[in-house]
Amino acid sequence: MFGRDYLGEFEHIIVLALLRLEDRAYGVSVRQEIQLRTSRGVSIGAVYATLARLESKGYVKSHRGDPTPERGGRSKRFFRVTAKGVGAVSRTQRALSRMTEGLHLIGSYA
């Protein structure tokens, strides 16, 4: 029915990172959060490409911070999840929960 409102795997991870980071979510913090929690090395380009896609779908919004000297006078771009994005992540989570219900994944398929 709302097939398009589900998130892809990496989109899902990015949105969860934004929700965790709240108002501190920008490129570096999102990349480091993903790396810390999933041990998955991602490029900043992959993060931005996915964020651009999520923004075009209306799942996230962005705004610019002030330029800072440690960034060579460049500003940060902060991201936050919209209500539509929260709805999408909830639907995706529910779908995953239903799909994994009754499965004993840990250890079984290792």
């Binding site: 920008y26 490129g27 570096v28 480091q32 931005y48 651009a52 440690e70 060579g72 460049r74 940060k76």
Partner: peptide
């Protein structure tokens, strides 16, 4: 290669890290 609207943030993020 970065889209104009993202170039500043991407280059800034890379420099920070």
């Amino acid at each position: 290669f970065a889209p104009a609207e993202e170039a500043e943030s991407i280059v800034g993020d890379l420099l920070e890290e």
